[in-house]
Each structure stands twice: as structure tokens, then as C-alpha cells.
Nucleic acid binder design. Structure first.
Lengths: 186, 186
DNA sequence: GGTCAAATAGACCAGTCTGTTTATTTATTC
DNA sequence: GAATAAATAAACAGACTGGTCTATTTGACC
């Protein structure tokens, strides 16, 4: 096997990563995925037991990629304020790159029923990690303060998807910056 | 006609209002709508020319109901700060009533493609109205200040849907309240 | 009672959906 | 070269999709 540079399983996941994010989970059919991945349908069901299972792997992979990018992007800044503001710059960059498709996790959330608990639990876990990221960066451990940043960050992502524009991110970043000047986070 | 207390067209829209919000737009089929509305399929296509058309009417109706409720809920408070905080209480109430299904408009946004411009334009218009609502309530006309509230409000709605909990709303409300104490909005 | 529009049930269409199965080919390893 | 596993194409199932159409019934008004 594997004269092909990328294995079928990987090609499937890569394609799902792209299509689920670009078009949404329900809108994207299994047939489009296998066709664009250049893979047989039986191969998909060899590596993933169902579409929902592929959805789970999609969220896991997306989380890994997204979080690693965030960490490496913010790692350059050492001081708290700069690090926080860098997170918003990361958002601007990813909006640009992905044409304002917003957050994979929140998009998925809108598509699932409350009782599809597997997917919901994963989404909640990953968002909690983002929340913890901000809390860890900030020196003052009060939840109110780190959640101010977390909520503004989440809103920035959502609203830039909505308006297909960077203004919500720029605005949120400026608000956070102003709050630092006001010593709100001390 | 009309021995029935509610007209077919109205029953269809009422049912769509419920099902699209509870289950999502793509997940909800035309057949479920007509079945639960107790209406013939031909009747649906007599009053609405397509599912997307029904989707448009759904957004319009939802906007009307939601906004009227917000206005009547916040109307009792006369002072700026109380009015703003009342908006968050409204969110708590609607979360309770609708079991944390979040914002109809943002949920729809996640399901559509960027080029389904009719739906996107409507969603943008309604969110812009909400943004204007906060700007109008607040005395200091600086955009940064009213958008701080708008963004926190939006995040509160989204995150309470995500975590199926009121804490994001309570948290956002407290943050806004603290910012008033800090004279951030002056 | 006659007229007309609104609403009905339900068959039907052409596609799409996820998922299964079969039979064949490909590539690796011993 | 034989054995083994991975991947393939393609047919197939069964359910569901949005939408059209026909033939019939209902109810209101004159």
C-alpha cells in the first residue's frame, strides 16, 4: 500500500476538515467527501464507523490545529496584555485565511440537537479549554476578569462571521486594550 | 372557510417558528412541518413558494416577536443602567422558556452558505437593529461603549446555548454592572 | 341552491441521504 | 511467488428530501 503520498484515512479527514468547516456538517454529504478525497465509500466506512464518528474526529482534529496555532501565535508575546491582544490578532488572521466562516465548534453547535450528547460534550470541553487559556494567561485570578476577555473574544469571532468583516475583532481588541488602560484587570 | 380558529397559513408559520428554532433549519423537513401543523402539502406551497421563502418568513416573524418582547421587557426600566441590565434579565427569561436553544439568527447563520444572500442580509439587518438598540439607550454616543454591551450580550446568548446554563448571562451582566461602577460608560 | 375560492388527501417525481455489500485490484511482506 | 491486508469501483438498499399535480371536499357569500 501507500504509493500515494497521503493515506486514504488522512485524505478523508483532511477533506472533512475543509468541507465541514466551509459548508457545515449537515449540508456536507458523505458522497461529496469521498469524491473530493478521491476515495471509495467503503474506505470511508472502513476507517470511520459513521458520519457522526467522522464528525467527532473532525472536531478533535480541528481543535488540535486551532489551538496549536493560537498557542504558537501568542507565544511570541511575553507580557499579559500583549499576549491577550495577540489572541485577537490571531482571530483576524484566521478570518482572513478562512473567509469568515467563524468557529467550527459553534457552527456545529447550531446544527445538532441537545440530545446528541457526544458532540455537545466535545464542544463544551474545547470551549472550556479556551476559557482556561485566558484565565491562565492573566495574573489576577478573578473569573470576572478573564471571562470578560473570553466573552469578548467569542463575540468577536461570531460577529465577524455574521458581518463578514474584521470590525468586531478590531472593536473587541480596542475594548480590551482600553480596559487595561483603565486598570480594570488589576 | 375558517371554521378553524387559526388559519392554515398561520398554523404553518407557527409550526415553522417552533420547529426551525428547536431543531434547526436544515434538520427540519417540510413534511414534519405540514404534519405537525395539520395542513396539506399543497396548502404550504399555496402560501409559501419554497422552503427558503418559509425560512425568510420565519426570520421575519421571529425578529418581530423577539424584539417586541425585548422592548416591552426593558420598557419598565427608565434609567440607562437599569435598562441595560434588564436586557440581560430578558435573556435569562428566554433561555428558561426556550431551553437554551440560543439565537435563531445565529443558528441560521451557521447553517447557510455565504452566497445564500437573502437570508444573510436579513440576519445582518436584525442584528444591526439590536446593536442600534443598545446605542440608542446609552447616553454617551461612543461606539466602543455601546458595542461593549452589544458584544457581551451576544456572547452571553451564544455561550448559554453552548453550556446549557445561565452562568454566561449572569457573568456578562455582572461585568456590565461593574463597568458602570468603574464609570467606564461615562 | 349555486358559485367560487380555499383547503384537503395523497399519489407521484426526481434526487439525495447514509450506509452495506460484493467482487476485484493493489501493494506489502515473508 | 504466495499470503495477507488495504483499497478500490459500483451496485444496491431504504428512507427521506423538496416540490408538483390531480381530484375532491369544505365553507362562505349571494
Amino acid at each position: 500500500m501507500k504509493h500515494h503520498p497521503v493515506l486514504p484515512k488522512e485524505r478523508i479527514l483532511d477533506t472533512a476538515l475543509r468541507l465541514f468547516h466551509e459548508q457545515g456538517y449537515n449540508t456536507t454529504g458523505i458522497n461529496q467527501i469521498i469524491s473530493e478525497a478521491g476515495v471509495a465509500k467503503a474506505s470511508l466506512y472502513l476507517h470511520f464507523k459513521s458520519k457522526e464518528d467522522l464528525g467527532v474526529e473532525y472536531l478533535k482534529a480541528r481543535h488540535k490545529i486551532w489551538f496549536e496555532q493560537l498557542l504558537s501565535f501568542t507565544d511570541e508575546s511575553k507580557k499579559e496584555k500583549k499576549k491577550i491582544l495577540a489572541a485577537f490578532d490571531f482571530l483576524i488572521q484566521i478570518n482572513e485565511k478562512e473567509h469568515f466562516r467563524g468557529c467550527s465548534f459553534l457552527n456545529m453547535l447550531s446544527e445538532i440537537q441537545s440530545d446528541e450528547s457526544q458532540l455537545l460534550a466535545i464542544i463544551q470541553e474545547y470551549k472550556q479549554q479556551l476559557r482556561t487559556f485566558f484565565a491562565d494567561v492573566m495574573e489576577n485570578p478573578k473569573d470576572d476578569l478573564s471571562d470578560t476577555v473570553y466573552l469578548l473574544f467569542e463575540a468577536a469571532m461570531q460577529e465577524s462571521q455574521l458581518f463578514k468583516s474584521q470590525w468586531p475583532v478590531e472593536r473587541a481588541k480596542k475594548i480590551v486594550s482600553d480596559l487595561y488602560k483603565l486598570k480594570y484587570f488589576k
